[in-house]
Design a protein around this nucleic acid. Structure first.
Lengths: 225, 225
DNA sequence: TATAATGTTTACAAAACTGTAACAAAACTT
DNA sequence: AAGTTTTGTTACAGTTTTGTAAACATTATA
């Protein structure tokens, strides 16, 4: 998987910096433009290597709408439009003139990246993955692979199901009854202590990451502190 | 461009009706489900003809997250997740487990349709690949020929179908139920162990390449590690 | 601090799962 | 119609997984 290049077009410098930093940390390569004219120039020049354009709607000189339409004429590069003021938030129009997503500012970088990845996943279906991750723990449910620091570990069916449930509800306490219902089935008849045993086995196999499974005395278990 | 089929999954009847009416007026064909279990059943049955799933997060029985993950395991059908309550609005998680868009209710039908169209615009008409290959294994679906290191091998119909399904979903775990549904037909009534037997026969015929078929204890089989 | 309540760990037998072989029914060929 | 191939089921064995109980540890409570 090669590095993706993103062009950020925004007239506010702090926003460009914020997004650029975050995207680079996520492994993207980033170009910047501060107005529509510059954006189009850069686009013409680097068209081939661009994978995505992050386009603000309010721009000096040439507005985002126009830039979006121009780019669409030339290329199929995905475009995400950003908008700040609610009166500019004509989502339907934005999508109709060729944007692939349309997002209201302020946008959390994590969210933005998640949306960008979802977009890429669509375009290059080979890399489609459904991963949950936390710290160095990675769960790909479609391939059923659990990794700790990129090292695959083997879990039994119950352990796996339990882990997925915990991670999925990370931050929330889940009672033993709930765990029994979800993992063992709602008409399962068995002792609650069984859950403890499995939690224990899971913790062992997760090694240091096992500490992310917290005991909430009297209530149940919770993933993450 | 033929008519697109959308599956609406929501437990609120008025929302289903509202969306259904609107989508049908826009030229879509619509199916409905009111809970997660029903959604998955419908999905298994109509998998082939579906183009999009509109999935509410809050559902009785099986929640939207689970449904989304299940669908993702087997298919590349786009999924749009809807959510009503803000505490359920974990956009990043939704997108990570395979949703293509994630929208907060109440959503204007016009907006929704614009987003759906933007999604479809991205998806290229899949040139139905006829040749699949993995390592020294080559499957030409148009001529029905399977080769190992350029050496043609003979597979029975069931073995062939099974292999194609596995290879098409390489890297993904497929449950015995799913294999039965896809290979033997949706309303086939027969034991799950039958799948094991055929997997076994397939492995034999594939020789060393047979090792690419992995057993995922408690869940099913997966092609490739 | 003593006691009760709750959670953790260990050990082991029971249960569940899978691979394989054998067999008979069904489908297909000739 | 006889022979061949494909198919579904069952049974058995080896292995892994699982549930339970009991001992052990920890935390709360009086």
């Amino acid at each position: 998987m090669d590095k993706k290049t993103v062009l950020i077009v925004d007239d506010e410098k702090n926003i460009r910096i914020l997004l650029k930093d975050f995207l680079e940390r996520e492994g993207f390569s980033v170009l910047e433009a501060q107005d529509g004219r510059q954006a189009l120039e850069l686009f013409n020049e680097k068209c081939e290597e661009l994978n995505l354009v992050l386009l603000d709607v309010m721009l000096p000189e040439l507005d985002g709408w126009t830039v979006c339409r121009e780019i669409r004429k030339l290329s199929k590069v995905p475009i995400v439009m950003l908008t700040a003021r609610s009166e500019d938030f004509d989502e339907v129009h934005g999508l109709e003139i060729g944007a692939d997503d349309y997002v209201k500012k302020p946008v959390k970088p994590t969210t933005l990246v998640a949306r960008i990845n979802a977009l890429f996943r669509r375009i290059e279906p080979d890399e489609s993955k459904t991963v949950m991750s936390y710290d160095g723990l990675e769960i790909d449910d479609s391939s059923h692979v659990v990794k700790i620091d990129c090292q695959e570990i083997a879990l039994s069916p119950k352990e796996y199901t339990l882990l997925v449930l915990l991670v999925e509800n990370k931050g929330k306490v889940i009672s033993r009854e709930q765990l029994l219902n979800q993992v063992w089935g709602y008409n399962y008849y068995g002792g609650l202590r069984t859950v403890d045993t499995h939690i224990n086995r899971l913790r062992m196999k997760l090694g240091s990451k096992g500490e992310a499974i917290n005991t909430i005395r009297g209530f149940g278990y919770k993933f993450e502190g």
